[in-house]
Design a protein around this nucleic acid. Sequence first.
DNA 1: CTTTAAATGTTCAATTATGAACATTGCTGT
DNA 2: ACAGCAATGTTCATAATTGAACATTTAAAG
Lengths: 171, 171
Amino acid sequence: MFNYEHCCITMNKKQPTIEQHHFPWDHPRFRSWIAVARACQLMQQTLTRALADLDIKPPHLDILINLYRFEGISQQELARKLLVGRSNMSMLLPQLEKRGLIERRGDEKDKRVLRLSLTKSGRELTEQAMEIQTTLIGNSLDNEPIEECLIVAQSMERLIARLLKEETDLD
Amino acid sequence: MFNYEHCCITMNKKQPTIEQHHFPWDHPRFRSWIAVARACQLMQQTLTRALADLDIKPPHLDILINLYRFEGISQQELARKLLVGRSNMSMLLPQLEKRGLIERRGDEKDKRVLRLSLTKSGRELTEQAMEIQTTLIGNSLDNEPIEECLIVAQSMERLIARLLKEETDLD
DNA sequence: CTTTAAATGTTCAATTATGAACATTGCTGT
DNA sequence: ACAGCAATGTTCATAATTGAACATTTAAAG
């Protein structure tokens, strides 16, 4: 990611506009996206530190929160929600199972799928971790007007829909 | 990451508001942030596919673009801009050097630092890759009003400043 | 009913990122 | 001048993520 502190979005108005947007970082949308990516990366690192006491990392929390919300979800569905591969779940879930945080039970109708759920201690840990994450996000964003948060959310959701659509169009 | 498609941001106004924001995903700022994270992840994956022909990945492109902009930057400065550790640069840069894309030359004044620069072929590859990335971002965001992009950018930059400040406060 | 195709989960090798420990070099204060 | 101390880069062990190949089970097609 980049530092664009010293880069002008709008060029000197007295100059002809022919050379505008010559470099990527002169495009407002490009710069906007870079800021998003940097913010994400930083937030991820901060969250990693904040969760260290609970001995979990952001990927584990993502899993736990989804099991919290969607009891009985399958590994495949979980992977799709998290935008990761199935193999990733096959690596991480047994760890959480060994720690007694989750349970994997075979579906009775379809012997291929494993249904996931939180154990009691898993639910407790998830609640602590969600509290930490919510506080972090709150602290980081509570200066941002709520309307701007909504604008950001809507903008991102349109982008997500767009990229997901292209992805499925490829298959 | 999560799917919140079926989750109401604003609850039924006729209900008492006591139970509002009980769960993290009921917080607008939380949901807004999740959308940002998901969008980032998807964009990263899409960019990875788009760059496959050039045989580089987003981390390499981040490096190349920074060398393109900041000729003679040191590994430490580069790592700071990219928000990664120094060791990461020690792993990736020799790869790019072996491919003849970059050069590492010891600083004459300070024998600790290595000054980085692009070779001719590195610059050409970078230009191709930047074209791909710019096009992808353009295609993904050109439906978003430019004012909203600016709102997003400013919001993210405030967030970055805030997180970076907290980080340095810890040291 | 049998054969194909698709879906789910696992395993494996390869890649990337991280932090700690280390060596080298430069800087500071006494 | 010199004894710490900070900065830069490397190495190593560890962990996360991916995609491909695989086995099992289910669904579809003939």
